[in-house]
Amino acid sequence: MEREKSIVSSVLVYSKSQRIGIILLFGIVLVLQGIYFFIDFKTTAKTSKEEAVWLSKQKDIDSLKFQNKNFKPTIYPFNPNFITDFKGYKLGMSVEEIDRLLACRKQNKFVNSAAEFQAVTKVSDSLLKTIAPYFKFPDWVQHKKQYASPFSKTELPKKEKIAILDINQATKEDLMKVYGIGDKISDRILEQREKLGSFVSMEQMQDIWGLSPEVVEKLKTSFAVKSTPNLKKININNASVKELSQFPFFRYALAKEIVTYRSMQGDIRMENLSKIKGFPVDKIQIIALYLDF
């Protein structure tokens, strides 16, 4: 018992400084408790002026959204032949249905009624019933009788046959009627014909300087070789170098080769032409018609 009293007395006996420290400690605890209960430590987010303006408009925006919940976009009349992927999606069509319509259009085919539209796209009856009232087809589809051809099948005008002229009888005026042939080119054609006496093939038009392949094809639709009345021939086995070089298909160098071959091999035959150095092999069939052997 005495021991316990001594322990209590030892605990209760503090120095002055210790008692002051304990009092200050209790004072600090009380102050902190008061601060915790009476001061709000929640952080408030700072908003800019611009954000504040937007927040003030939010109520108006929310009210407009509520009013537009039942809003349906206006559908204007359209030609179903030209439905795009986006347009079809908005109308409620599936990807497969849209692809069927686009495949039909790629074949240059058109649908001219709601029934044809459904037959091509395979859309459901309910969807067709919804979108068909907005289909707008061209006037001629709606009023075919008014746009019927004024000619019956038996009264259709016949196409006029193009008269094909003889190129060896053609005049300058005849040639100039072909689109692409002017004054100078027509003169070149007539000059070449004069040198040869007559053309033997329309392929010779390719040798006329200034004639494009397109114009040559047009010439072939209007002209043909029907006769060769003034055909000039040259004897390849007797003509001199000078005479051969004046022939439109031969130049001086080729004329010398012909005479050299002739002096070494004897008379030239048609089958020997390709053996002569520098001879235009691609034109043998035409050149041979101007030669005497």
Rank of each mutant, 00 (worst) to 15 (best):
S152Q: 08
L175G: 10
K109D: 10
T221Y: 02
N237A: 11
E160P: 01
P157T: 00
V216A: 11
L101H: 08
M270Q: 15
T130R: 15
S186M: 07
E214L: 09
N235A: 08
K256T: 14
I286K: 00
A239K: 02
Y36D: 08
N168S: 04
Q192E: 15
T221P: 01
D174K: 03
A224N: 00
Q265M: 14
V95I: 11
T74W: 03
K65V: 12
E203V: 07
D40E: 10
A148Y: 03
D62W: 00
A45W: 01
N68H: 12
F38P: 00
E203F: 12
S15I: 04
I7W: 04
P80K: 04
L91S: 06
N112G: 07
V216D: 02
R251H: 12
L231E: 06
V123W: 03
S17Y: 02
S126I: 11
Y261G: 10
D166M: 08
Y76E: 12
G266C: 13
L55F: 07
L32A: 13
S48C: 05
K122Y: 09
R251A: 11
I189V: 15
V141D: 06
I83Q: 05
E243C: 03
F117N: 01
S149P: 04
L231C: 05
S240D: 14
N238P: 01
V8C: 12
V123Y: 04
K16Y: 10
K184C: 00
M1F: 15
A170C: 04
D139N: 05
A132W: 02
W54M: 13
M1V: 09
E173N: 09
N272A: 13
V200E: 09
L55G: 07
W140S: 09
K177V: 00
Q33I: 15
V123C: 07
I23M: 11
M93F: 13
L55C: 00
T44W: 03
L175Q: 05
K232I: 13
F82Q: 02
F71N: 12
S94Y: 02
F37P: 01
P229T: 11
Q285L: 04
Y179I: 08
L128P: 04
Q107C: 02
D85R: 11
Y134G: 12
K158F: 03
A115R: 07
K172M: 10
F247D: 06
N112A: 11
N79H: 05
T43S: 13
Q67F: 10
K109T: 06
I83P: 05
I7S: 07
I181S: 04
I164S: 02
K233D: 02
F117W: 05
E173S: 10
P213C: 05
K59W: 01
I287C: 02
G27I: 14
Q146L: 15
R269A: 11
A45F: 07
D207A: 14
K277V: 11
I181T: 06
Y147C: 08
V95D: 09
E243Y: 08
P157F: 05
K159H: 06
K106D: 15
S17N: 06
F137H: 10
I287A: 07
R3S: 13
P77D: 01
R100L: 13
M205Y: 12
V95A: 14
D166N: 14
V29P: 02
G27E: 00
K16I: 07
F82G: 06
Q206C: 06
M93E: 02
E203N: 15
V241C: 08
R262T: 09
Y252Q: 12
A103G: 13
V120M: 08
G21E: 02
